[in-house]
């Protein structure tokens, strides 16, 4: 099996995606989790673009980076977490 350049890019993206998902689970501070989750959405948008679906890429960029980050930040401000 011969890997092309596109497959290599996709493998790198998937590796970054797995690392980010693990980071979201293990990082304690919720603000860092929100920021890392924004990076997850960005990588996912690039991945959708690479898979020839720019429609989903635009929606992922708008919904993931904008709305999810804003909403989680707001919820984090209103909810106090007990240690």
């Amino acid at each position: 099996m011969i890997l092309g350049t596109g497959d290599l890019i996709m493998m790198i993206f998937f590796a970054i995606l797995i690392i980010i998902a693990l980071c979201v689970t293990f990082v304690q501070d919720l603000l860092y989790v929100v920021i890392i989750f924004g990076v997850y959405s960005l990588i996912m948008a690039l991945l959708w673009l690479h898979l020839n679906s720019p429609d989903l890429a635009i929606t992922e960029a708008a919904a993931g980076i904008g709305v999810t980050t804003l909403m989680i930040t707001l919820i984090r401000r209103t909810v106090r977490r007990e240690n």
Partner: peptide, 21 residues
């Protein structure tokens, strides 16, 4: 072109949210 009403409306709403923030 790529996009549509959902993504466009979300971008439009994010403009107002930036103003609010």
């Amino acid at each position: 072109s790529p996009g549509g009403s959902f993504a466009g409306g979300m971008i439009l709403g994010l403009g107002f949210i930036a103003l609010n923030v």
